[in-house]
């Protein structure tokens, strides 16, 4: 698997810093699961985080802070007792990181001819909606523009648009300035994880007809 399209550096820093909202975090994580290069860089950013922490000026702590913590040392870690939550089999949608496979996920829903989606319900409120989008071979995906940022990570199959050709693991970023009409490769379905902020604006006659029905 040759990955050609990566999230930009500031997103990898934000990922490691833990400042992305959960929906965008999920999209970057999906890319990282496929991309050792970005994983290494995100890991390096955690080390940078360590260096940042090391060099911060100390803030005085409560006088009894150490005693209080020492008194708690024997406490049992409750997280270890947490019941494992059910998760989607890795084979069902290959490429999804484990933590996403634990989220409630809907059935495939029809969106447009040969285009289906499955909603993923995030356990925390997020400004980003996350769903899987499946488009049939040769489909022109809906021509659309965005009012916010849209992150797409290809799980299987491939598509292309003016920005290049996107296969498994590739990451694509759309924003208000981008108006793409992706075209799915022949041969197999293209399944993507999409993390979308703002509203989707469908363009063209099909979009105008469909807009009232598509509430992504």
């Amino acid at each position: 698997m040759t990955i050609r399209h990566h999230p930009d550096d500031s997103m990898l820093i934000a990922f490691a810093a833990g400042t992305l909202d959960l929906g965008q975090h999920a999209a970057i994580a999906t890319h990282l699961a496929a991309c050792p290069r970005c994983r290494r860089l995100a890991s390096a950013m955690e080390h940078v985080g360590g260096a940042v922490l090391e060099n911060l000026p100390p803030a005085p702590m409560a006088g009894n802070a150490l005693e209080r913590v020492m008194a708690r040392l024997p406490e049992i870690d409750r997280a270890a007792e947490r019941e494992p939550s059910p998760e989607m089999a890795a084979a069902e949608i290959p490429g999804l990181p484990k933590f996403i496979r634990k989220y409630p996920i809907g059935e495939w829903q029809w969106v447009a001819p040969r285009v289906h989606l499955r909603r993923i319900t995030l356990p925390e409120p997020s400004r980003t909606r996350v769903f899987l989008l499946r488009s049939g071979p040769g489909t022109k995906m809906l021509q659309h523009s965005h009012t916010g940022i849209e992150m797409t990570c290809v799980l299987s199959g491939a598509f292309k648009h003016e920005g290049g050709h996107f296969g498994p693991g590739d990451f694509d970023l759309g924003d208000a300035t981008v108006d793409h009409q992706p075209m799915v490769d022949d041969g197999e379905d293209c399944v993507c994880l999409v993390a979308m902020q703002g509203d989707l604006r469908l363009n063209g006659i099909l979009g105008r007809v469909m807009q009232p029905f598509v509430r992504l």
């Binding site: 940042v52 922490l53 090391e54 911060l56 000026p57 100390p58 803030a59 005085p60 702590m61 802070a65 150490l66 913590v69």
Partner: peptide, 12 residues
Amino acid sequence: LFEYFGPRVKTY
């Protein structure tokens, strides 16, 4: 460890 990192984690 606490003496070095505790106050820095607090600043973080």
